[in-house]
């Protein structure tokens, strides 16, 4: 798999303020990639540099091998949902999307616009002025323009921020559909959402990269699992004696954590044997999950 986006030593200064500081990571082709970090971490600045909106102070970015700051190179190659970018209010949505399609050089701009609106479940807004859309509708129309022409890379900055749960779920459904067919870069504060959608992530904090890895590596899915114990005495020594188990301990809130050697044993084998052992020892449990929650990892790293 080759890198769709390569970022090397990227920095961005706004006067004396360093928004992004020497960040390096790659986004593999076909991956759904998450940009994670607290407010002011530099996610949107990094995102904006990848889209060619902002010029890096130093470092390089290559999007499909191209420098995004070069004029017009991203045409038909990327679709972007920028954060807080307002759609021109006087335009009817359909006409606006058709206009964007024409600017992208799409041969059937109007039908592309209609299809994109269908995809975000807003065909009824075709004749509605962009200025009259609610926040959620505005976000989805913005998403529709990013999907038009089916570009190989799609950037989504906070795609579900401020949306009600039902609409957010439908947006996540759209992103899930994009996986594998497009390279998708998603910036979000919703870690559960990113954990569910992303193959890999970069975690930023105060402008610096604190982690860039696959989701499985980040959450330790290949190295540990946890069991929420309801009742019973956990047989720690017997668990430790299982082949491939490196350690077993009960953490806070009665959560059993078992770490294992993923080279010696497959996760599904060790999890099945461990919960089997618990069952035979009359230990009742509620849930089993692999690795740590992304939220825990992010909180530990930032």
């Amino acid at each position: 798999m080759s890198a769709a986006i390569e970022i090397k030593g990227l920095s961005k200064h706004f006067g004396a303020k360093v928004a992004v500081n020497d960040v390096t990571f790659n986004v593999e082709e076909g991956h759904c990639y998450g940009l994670i970090g607290p407010n002011g971490a530099g996610k949107t600045t990094t995102f904006s540099m990848m889209c060619g909106f902002l010029f890096p102070t130093s470092g390089t970015i290559r999007v499909l091998g191209l420098d995004p700051t070069e004029p017009g190179v991203l045409k038909q190659k990327v679709g972007v949902l920028p954060q807080d970018a307002i759609l021109p209010p006087m335009w009817p949505v359909g006409e606006l999307l058709t206009y964007y399609g024409e600017l992208s050089g799409l041969p059937n701009a109007e039908s592309e616009a209609k299809a994109a609106l269908e995809r975000v479940q807003l065909p009824e807004t075709w004749n509605v002025q962009a200025g009259a859309l609610s926040h959620g509708m505005h976000k989805r129309v913005s998403m529709a323009q990013a999907l038009m022409g089916s570009p190989p890379i799609i950037f989504l900055d906070e795609p579900t921020a401020g949306l009600d749960p039902k609409i957010a779920a439908s947006v996540r459904g759209v992103i899930r559909d994009l996986k594998g067919k497009h390279t998708v870069v998603v910036s979000s504060h919703n870690l559960q959402e990113l954990e569910e959608l992303c193959d890999a992530t970069a975690i930023l904090d105060k402008g610096k990269l604190v982690s860039a890895s696959t989701m499985a590596e980040l959450t330790g899915q290949m190295a540990e699992f946890r069991v929420q114990i309801a009742r019973g005495q956990v047989p720690i020594d017997e668990l430790k004696a299982l082949t491939g188990v490196k350690d077993a301990k009960v953490e806070a809130n009665n959560v059993l954590c078992v770490s294992f050697d993923s080279v010696a044993v497959q996760p599904e084998e060790i999890i099945t044997r461990a919960v089997g052992l618990l069952a035979t020892k009359n230990v009742l449990f509620l849930t089993v999950w692999r690795g740590k929650r992304l939220e825990e990892r992010v909180l530990a790293l930032t």
């Binding site: 889209c51 060619g52 004029p71 017009g72 045409k75 972007v80 920028p82 964007y100 323009q145």
Partner: peptide
């Protein structure tokens, strides 16, 4: 920003 990703 909706324009600069599409045109020079």
């Amino acid at each position: 920003r909706y324009l600069v990703v599409r045109v020079k």
